[in-house]
């Protein structure tokens, strides 16, 4: 029974790691670099939703606040690509790493100066609601997290598998030069992908905020999500999600049954094991080079 409880809340946490990891992978595939501000984009998205929705702030209805935050964060992601990332085209990957680390600091500073550093609670229509199923407590926040993640994953799958724009994005991620010559506007698509990863980050941030208070430093969760993305293989969207779920599930179980601070280390231990045994990640798309 206790295990079941840990499993359930683990899956809900894992969904959030998975969504942030998804953002890492989206950008890794389009810009061929890691966006270390992904966690901070999640934080900023959560704060914008809180700022729009909380009664003490703008007091907009819950749904409108969330949609508004998603639209604003689409703009933030799109703008970051448009103004900064595009200039780094053809530069070493390291340039993007430094840029995004700096951006992360800026986002934290912006959120801190608007909303302060004391934890704030996002008001939701379902805060505090939960159900007891024979000893296992299911909170509404956890259930909604799992549901929303499933819906968003399905929507992304549809986008990438079925729509012309999604297929073009996949093509550009495999070979930009080839994508250009079949008529794919690669640079324009990169802006769209950055916007999309802003939206995914916002959804993750809002879901995170439904479970507890938020402050400008929650973006550090991004490091764990990065481990999840690496476990999944960095280039694979389902891999990122499953990597997130794996970390989410193992963390509370290690916290309960393993000694000391092992739970804190568990995501990184798993990442190291995966890197040693399957260097390309669990869902590796890298094939051995033929010589």
């Amino acid at each position: 029974m206790e295990l079941l409880q840990l499993l359930f809340s683990g899956i809900a946490n894992g969904c959030i790691y998975g969504l942030v990891a998804l953002g890492f992978v989206l950008i890794y595939k389009s810009s061929e670099g890691v966006n270390f501000a992904q966690g901070d984009m999640m934080m900023l998205g959560a704060f914008i939703a809180l700022g729009l929705g909380n009664s003490a702030q703008m007091g907009l209805p819950f749904g409108i606040a969330i949609i508004g935050a998603m639209i604003i964060m689409y703009g933030v992601g799109w703008g970051v690509e448009r103004v900064f990332v595009r200039q780094l085209f053809g530069q070493p990957q390291f340039a993007l790493v430094i840029l995004t680390i700096a951006m992360g600091f800026i986002f934290r500073f912006i959120a801190g100066s608007i909303w302060g550093y004391t934890p704030l609670v996002f008001e939701t229509p379902f805060s505090g609601m939960n159900w007891n199923f024979g000893g296992v407590i299911l909170s509404a926040a956890d259930l909604i997290t799992i549901l929303v993640t499933a819906v968003l994953t399905l929507a992304l799958w549809f986008f990438f598998a079925r729509t012309k724009t999604g297929l073009a994005a996949q093509a550009a991620s495999q070979n930009q030069m080839a994508a250009y010559i079949v008529g794919v506007p690669v640079i324009r698509l990169n802006s769209l992908i950055w916007g999309l990863s802003g939206v995914v980050a916002t959804v993750a941030g809002v879901l995170y905020a439904t479970k507890g208070a938020i402050d400008p430093n929650i973006g550090l969760l991004g490091i764990k999500a990065f481990a999840a993305a690496v476990i999944g293989g960095m280039g694979s969207l389902p891999g990122a999600l499953l990597g997130g779920l794996l970390i989410g599930i193992i963390e509370p179980i290690a916290g309960r049954y393993a000694p000391g601070e092992l739970a804190q280390m568990s995501p990184y231990i798993i990442m190291l094991i995966v890197l040693i045994t399957r260097p390309g990640g669990l869902f590796s798309q890298i094939h051995a080079k033929k010589v």
Partner: peptide, 24 residues
């Protein structure tokens, strides 16, 4: 024109070092 406008005009090309979508 931009590189992605060329295909629509009816110009196609191949590359010396082969540029394909390798995982497809």
């Amino acid at each position: 024109l931009k590189a992605h406008d060329i295909a629509q005009l009816g110009i196609a090309r191949t590359f010396q070092n082969i540029e394909l979508f390798d995982h497809s």
